[in-house]
Write a protein that binds this DNA or RNA. Structure first.
Lengths: 346, 346
DNA sequence: CGCCAATGTGCAATCGTTTGCATATTCAGT
DNA sequence: ACTGAATATGCAAACGATTGCACATTGGCG
């Protein structure tokens, strides 16, 4: 029932020229081949009739939809909104719109949603939910779809990725804890099929080795998801194991929040009994008490960076060489959840 | 550089029938007019060639993009992600994709983004960022665009809207406070150009009247935005006014969080000195201490409801009568930020 | 055996653009 | 004034689907 919009044909009729002339007059790069006064006439008519180009027809003809897909695990996870705003801040001014889809970290969903995006002819995809080995996205990239991955990377591929300096973050955190006197340090690792989980665990191991801290293998527990429930479960496991520890370095903030809750349930105070650290500095973390010591990652900037790379990818001359890896700096935030190792141990 | 996809024409060539026959064979509602064996042959070919319909071409021909626009103030505000998931949960299975845009509550941005959405030929719009009087969206609806507003409503229009039972929520909160003995109750009102702000203030006034509680006009302070900074500012104003109060009923959670911070800065404990209440029960609120007494609104369900109504609107026979107003139930959550009025007043 | 209705398929136009090519006009140079 | 280039515009074919209509085939029935 939409009131019909004015088309090139309408303008052509109104100005007495051919529709192709109108098309050229309205296209900045083609405009030069048209007499200035007829350009003026056409622009005036376009203005008067309130012409708005039909992007669908444009898309069909040119095979460019000016749309990008953004794949994330779950928009409800607060680290993603800032990323999305970052992406939007570079893409939207250029006329791109984005379609955001949530995979809930389910492989079938991810595959299906990727199909959906391709069906809609997106010009590119920013993917913040890839698995470490992810054939579907690799294949899409192979087929010529422009793809950038964010926060994670798919191995053995030449898909550009933007990640945070996980290594440095973990390393600084570990140094921070040792400086406070901690030696028996547990690690709540993230899911190992996600590159962040895997990277942070590897970073933990290698940093410990470098600093000559002996890590009891029993003190490394792996979560199946990055959420509070898993943080709680892993902490219970840790306590049940009977192995002693004075600090827990968690692979992200949500694990840390779950961890602190369980410690409290068991009469252990954070930080006076046990220190706990997070990773990400997610939004709203400042509401939690004790305020969590964590590693800040650049969420908004990550979005900006990924979008910029995607742009270059989409408009790439083959000449253009796009950086495969971009590592964003991180920052240690010392707050209240970590403190000096207690004098008397439990 | 995309590897070219298979089209109806390819299937037609492969099966030796006309492209229109292929189209019909693949369309469930048209299928019945084609001989079963040729349907089978066509489907087999479609399968074999991995045919995926081109939605762009479909959109151009049928004027249906199977895309809806979702307009929100800011995805970074945690009440929106659940709403979006709710919307997605009904629209995505039906083949719709959504384009989400952030207005940052700026009128020009809102107008421009609405244009963007219309340019892209969205089939409908869910608008959670309208102003109380909003000509641009009213005009769009007039032009035949399907629109539903969410959380807010535009006055003097017949645009269907989904809101929460603000009235009931405020009323129950006020009753809760009075039951605790509070009489001198302040109100941190939201922006009055947003219908939630306006509705909640009106509800506050009328509920107070119904309960015969006298409200000092000086104890009503209006925020310019729904955020912590404004909550803080208004609370300072309240304290500076010198008027006495024992409770602050805030128009939303973020105002309440800002309020509590400022009270604490001034040596006032919540709830033992002053009770504070919020509204929305936004995600991550449970991290805050004291845990905030608030009114839970149904965020996910609001998304579901709005999407369902939009669907009916988009597929409306004129016969179909769509509810103009949907009011979702709310629930009072008594937590720690409200308590009995202190024996000795400051 | 012939006629008509029913059924299945093909034809071609259409949606609104873009774009390679053909054509018409202008203009400069001799 | 005539040729040839340069320049501006028009023509028409795409892009990939849908859909009203025409046509051909079949089968039933008198």
């Amino acid at each position: 029932m939409q009131k019909k919009r004015t088309t090139l044909k309408d303008i052509a009729r109104a100005t007495g020229v051919h529709v192709s002339t109108v098309s050229r007059a309205l296209d900045p790069t083609e405009r030069k081949s048209i007499t200035p006064e007829v350009v003026a006439k056409i622009q005036a008519a376009a203005e008067r009739l309130d012409y708005r180009p039909n992007r669908i027809a444009f898309g069909l003809r040119t095979n460019r939809t000016m749309t990008v897909g953004v794949v994330i695990p779950d928009i409800t996870n607060p680290i993603f909104p800032p990323i999305l705003r970052g992406i939007e801040s570079v893409l939207e001014p250029l006329g791109y719109a984005s379609i955001i889809v949530n995979t809930d970290s389910e492989r079938e969903r991810e595959i299906r949603l990727l199909e959906v995006l391709r069906d809609r002819g997106v010009d590119g995809v920013i993917h913040a939910a890839v698995l470490r080995s992810d054939p579907s996205i690799a294949k899409a990239a192979q087929d010529g779809l422009s793809v950038v991955t964010l926060n994670r990377r798919v191995e053995n591929s030449n898909i550009p990725y933007v990640i945070n300096d996980e290594d440095l973050g973990i390393c600084e955190m570990l140094r921070h804890l040792t400086k406070l006197g901690h030696r028996r340090i547990a690690h709540l690792a993230g899911p190992q099929d996600l590159s962040t989980g895997q990277l942070r665990l590897a970073a933990f191991r290698s940093a410990a080795e470098r600093m000559s801290i002996e890590i009891d293998p029993q003190l490394i527990v792996t979560a199946m998801r990055f959420d509070e429930d898993e943080g709680a479960r892993c902490t219970r496991e840790l306590l049940a194991s009977g192995h002693d520890f004075t600090a827990v370095l968690c692979a992200n903030d949500r694990l840390a929040l779950g961890c602190i809750d369980v410690l409290r349930e068991n009469g252990l105070d954070c930080p006076s009994d046990i220190s706990v650290s997070g990773f990400n500095d997610m939004p709203f973390l400042q509401l939690a008490r004790p305020r969590l010591t964590t590693v800040r990652i650049q969420q908004y900037d990550a979005g900006i960076t990924a979008a910029s790379i995607l742009l270059r990818l989409m408009n790439a001359g083959a000449d253009d060489d796009i950086p495969l890896e971009t590592v964003l700096p991180v920052e240690l935030l010392e707050r209240e959840s970590t403190g000096p190792v207690a004098a008397q141990r439990r």
